[in-house]
């Protein structure tokens, strides 16, 4: 099974436990930190994948990395990962935890890209419209991309609503190309 779907299951289980204890934000914080370390420290990855190091020593290292400030459920999570040789789940754990938490809270992140910076009123309007359309809480993130010429494009997960001038010009271009092809075919025929 792909490691990502494995990670998703582990993280869901952790989230359930953390929610019970009211520690979900602290757990997210810890997992984010771990994911970053995992990405930036090849030594950590090698050590965790090395069967010559006994598992209790590997666990000890992980627990020290996590630190004493981390909630109990995260320490427990490390024990589970080491016992099942699934420490590589950490590669995705932070992102997946954030996703799962958003899902549980009914929150979605939207990236709004526009040619010029949006005013507060515009941001409000966009957020309101999205909340209306998707029936969930929206956390907006804005980006400016002058190449879009005008309009806005919104991306929420896989969902894209592109109302930019650039996209419209692009679809006009495609339309004209198709017309030209059909005409050329008709002339040949």
């Amino acid at each position: 099974m792909a490691i990502e779907s494995v990670a998703r299951r582990y993280v869901r289980a952790l989230l359930a436990v953390a929610t019970e204890r009211g520690e979900e934000d602290a757990a997210l914080e810890a997992l984010r930190g771990l994911q970053q370390l995992w990405g930036s420290l090849p030594e950590l990855r090698h050590a965790m994948g090395n069967p010559q190091i006994p598992s209790d020593r590997r666990l000890a290292v992980l627990l020290r990395v996590v630190g004493s400030a981390a909630p109990e459920c995260v320490c427990q999570f490390m024990r589970v990962l080491v016992r099942h040789s699934r420490v590589d789940v950490l590669r995705y754990a932070g992102d997946l935890m954030a996703q799962a938490l958003d899902e549980a809270r009914g929150v979605r992140h939207a990236t709004v890209t526009s040619a010029m910076a949006l005013t507060d009123a515009q941001r409000q309007a966009v957020a309101e419209a999205l909340r209306e359309a998707l029936q969930c809480e929206i956390i907006l993130e804005t980006r400016v991309e002058p190449a879009m010429i005008g309009g806005v494009a919104v991306r929420i997960g896989d969902l894209v609503v592109d109302g930019s001038i650039r996209q419209r010009l692009e679809s006009i271009r495609r339309h004209l190309e198709r017309e030209r092809e059909l005409r050329a075919q008709a002339v040949e025929g």
Partner: peptide, 16 residues
């Protein structure tokens, strides 16, 4: 003439 058939609507698409 060619653009007369053209219209855009704002639509939601899923991307991958």
């Amino acid at each position: 003439q060619e653009l007369s058939a053209f219209e855009t609507t704002l639509e939601m698409v899923h991307v991958g």
